[in-house]
């Protein structure tokens, strides 16, 4: 074989082998790219929380309450719930209304007040902070305040309203959070509707020690509601 032939054979081999590699790799990448374009991607989208306890029935009630209490835009924002309205909107007995919040046992906090008072003590303030900062994916922050049945109804209604406001004012002062006005809703129930039973004494409270039915109702029940409604 001539020297020139040897040269050409080797030169062609030196070009052809890498060329084949480039051609096959490019064709393979092109084919996979075409296939992947038609395939769907399976990546979650960032969304608010919708916990397992958010049954359709619960969502309906939360939505009714939230709408009637001015939490939803278009529901006449800037209003609040009076005991009568809350009862009517919930369309539930007091016991059933409270039962609705039972799945929130590990999420809710009960802020306790002194008799006839609406001021937060240091433990109450710490618990309010803790509760608000644990929003996670929740959309609604409910502040449901009550009073014990001592005294007359009108006084107790005003007292429970002041307790709810006290919680809200503290949150505003502590966090300066614009979303507070969009996410926090107040229900003041006075003594008329959905009084808490003793069993709520075992929930996460701002005060330790003895807890009577009257004590647990001198309170504001605060909780994030993890329902996308």
């Amino acid at each position: 074989m001539s020297d020139t032939s040897k040269r050409w054979i080797l030169l062609v081999a030196a070009l052809a082998i890498p060329l084949v590699l480039v051609v096959t790799s490019a064709a393979s990448a092109q084919s996979r790219l075409g296939a992947s374009k038609s395939a769907t991607r399976d990546v979650a989208t960032a969304s608010v929380a919708n916990d397992a306890y958010c049954t359709p029935e619960l969502k309906a009630i939360v939505r009714r309450v939230a709408g009637a209490c001015g939490l939803l835009e278009g529901g006449g924002g800037g209003r609040g719930c009076q005991p009568l309205q809350a009862k009517k909107v919930a369309a539930l007995s007091g016991r059933d209304f409270n039962a609705m919040f039972k799945p929130l046992m590990n999420r809710a906090h009960i802020i306790q007040f002194d008799s006839t008072k609406a001021e937060l003590d240091p433990a109450a303030r710490a618990l309010v902070e803790k509760a608000w900062s644990d929003q996670r994916g929740a959309s609604f922050f409910f502040i449901v305040s009550r009073s014990s049945p001592d005294g007359d109804e009108q006084y107790n209604e005003a007292l429970s309203r002041d307790r709810a406001k006290s919680v809200l004012d503290y949150l505003d002062q502590k966090f300066h959070d614009e979303d507070l006005k969009k996410e926090a809703g107040l229900l003041w129930l006075g003594e008329e509707f959905a009084q808490l039973s003793d069993e709520f004494c075992s929930w996460n409270r701002s005060r330790s020690g003895s807890c009577s039915r009257a004590d647990i109702n001198r309170s504001a029940f605060v909780a994030w509601i993890d329902c996308a409604i």
Binding site: R63, L72, G74, G75, G77, Q82, L168
Partner: peptide, 28 residues
């Protein structure tokens, strides 16, 4: 979205109440 029917029915009664104290606003 529009408010739920039940809430809408209640609006006149609720609107008659004093509003100054209420802070609740819409949620996300």
């Amino acid at each position: 979205p529009p408010p739920p029917t039940v809430a809408a029915e209640l609006q006149p009664a609720v609107a008659a109440e004093p509003v100054a104290e209420v802070v609740a606003k819409p949620v996300t």
